[in-house]
């Protein structure tokens, strides 16, 4: 009997090991009670398929994305330069993250500050694992044959044009993928991007997550799949607002896959 391993880069370095990938957990993945479950599901998958990975653990800091979007370029760059120093010291080559905001920042914005890595989102990573047959999905499952809709995260979709990977993951699950009226490049934001996650919305007629939740509910799906911690929070709040927690779940792709792997 063994337990799951979550090695840190420091431990790996001490043992003169270099992992194949750095799993960038992100602040939500580290601290948000709900998203910690996603982080745990994802490391279990990594363990099961035997991927050589490590995390930064306490050495990780916010990528700086919300500070930059809120206008505080100094704070962003302080965070970014510090993170890049840590990652470069460990000679990180490849980064996988479950947060599209971290994904976008490390992939597109760290190179200008000296951080050059191959960065992929966990939806792309899961798609690859499924495609290569490394993830073996068991039959049945909670959502077998049922409708699931996918909510595009802006920072994965429009910002980086990743539309198909998450959908291919869902389609591999033996469920019926249904699309919302606004999807892919026309997907409606959950309302949390651009540092909105960290403040109350400006005055208006409606909250954006309510608008998006209504669209998701209109598909008749029993689950709303997401690939972003902020979207997860916003859509979950929307479902609670509509008092539909009992029949509609908001789940991350990694959780769906982990469940179908029986872990």
């Amino acid at each position: 009997m063994s337990t799951y391993h979550v090695p840190t880069m420091a431990e790996m370095a001490a043992a003169s090991n270099t992992p194949e990938i750095l799993f960038w957990v992100g602040c939500a993945g580290s601290f948000d009670e709900r998203y910690k479950v996603v982080t745990q599901a994802f490391v279990k998958i990594l363990n099961k398929v035997g991927v050589s990975f490590a995390v930064l653990g306490p050495e990780e800091a916010c990528t700086g994305d919300p500070a930059r979007r809120a206008g505080n370029e100094f704070l962003f760059q302080m965070q970014a330069v510090a993170n890049i120093q840590v990652m470069n010291a460990y000679e990180v080559k490849k980064v996988v993250t479950a947060c599209p905001h971290c994904f976008n920042t490390i992939k597109n914005e760290y190179p200008a500050l000296g951080g050059n890595y191959e960065v992929i989102h966990h939806s792309q990573f899961l798609q690859q694992l499924i495609h290569e047959g490394k993830v073996v999905l068991q039959g049945g499952g909670e959502f077998k044959g049922k409708k699931i809709t996918f909510h595009d995260s802006c920072y994965l979709g429009r910002a980086n044009e990743v539309y198909e990977a998450p959908r291919e993951v869902i389609q591999a699950l033996d469920v019926e993928l249904v699309e919302m009226k606004r999807c892919r490049s026309k997907g409606l934001c959950c309302g949390a991007g651009g540092a909105q996650m960290f403040k109350e919305p400006e005055p208006g007629a409606k909250d954006i997550n309510i608008e998006r939740t209504e669209e998701a509910l209109a598909t008749g799906a029993e689950a709303i799949a997401v690939g972003c911690p902020f979207c997860l929070t916003m859509m979950t709040d929307g479902i609670k607002n509509k008092e539909r927690e009992s029949d509609v779940q908001v789940v991350d792709l990694a959780e769906l896959v982990a469940k179908r792997m029986g872990i």
Binding site: M1, T3, Y4, C27, K36
Partner: peptide, 28 residues
């Protein structure tokens, strides 16, 4: 972010606590 390197007010030393649960779980 300046004081605890996260947009939320959590202690940076707790950042890796999420792993405790999964490290205790059996991997069959």
């Amino acid at each position: 972010m300046e004081t605890s390197f996260s947009p939320w007010k959590f202690s940076p030393s707790d950042r890796f606590n999420w792993a405790d649960k999964v490290k205790a779980e059996e991997n069959n």
